Simulated assay, not measured.
Amino acid sequence: MNTYGTRSRSLSARAEGTLSRPLLAIAATSLVAGIVFGGVSYLSRSSEHETHVEGTAAWWPHLVLFTLVAALVVVVRRRGHHPFRLLLAPVSITAAQRLVRTLRSVLTHPTALLRLLLSILPIALLVYSPFRIGAQILGGLDPNFTVNAWGGPTYLGAMIFHYFDGVLLMAAAAALLNLLLLPSKQATDVIR
Rank of each mutant, 00 (worst) to 15 (best):
T188K: 04
A70H: 00
Y163F: 15
L156C: 01
R104M: 05
A57I: 09
Y128K: 08
I137N: 10
L138T: 10
L24E: 10
I35Y: 07
N144A: 13
G39Q: 10
L125H: 02
W59P: 11
H49R: 14
G34T: 08
P61I: 01
S119N: 08
S12I: 11
T18S: 15
M1P: 11
V53S: 00
S184P: 01
P122R: 05
S10R: 07
R85W: 08
A172I: 14
L117Y: 00
A95F: 14
M1I: 09
T3S: 02
V75S: 09
A70K: 05
I191T: 06
S129Q: 15
D165S: 13
S47V: 11
L182I: 03
S105Y: 01
A112C: 02
P143R: 10
L107D: 13
L181K: 02
I120P: 00
Q97G: 06
G34H: 07
L177W: 11
T146I: 12
L179V: 10
V69L: 08
G38I: 02
G139C: 04
E48P: 00
A149C: 06
I133D: 01
L43T: 12
P143C: 10
N178R: 08
V74E: 09
R9C: 00
P183W: 08
Q97W: 09
T154Q: 03
M159P: 07
V75C: 05
R7Q: 12
P22H: 04
G55A: 06
H82S: 15
L68G: 13
V106N: 07
H62F: 14
L103V: 00
T29P: 04
A28M: 12
A149T: 07
N148K: 05
P153S: 04
F161D: 14
A96L: 12
A70R: 08
T29H: 01
S119K: 09
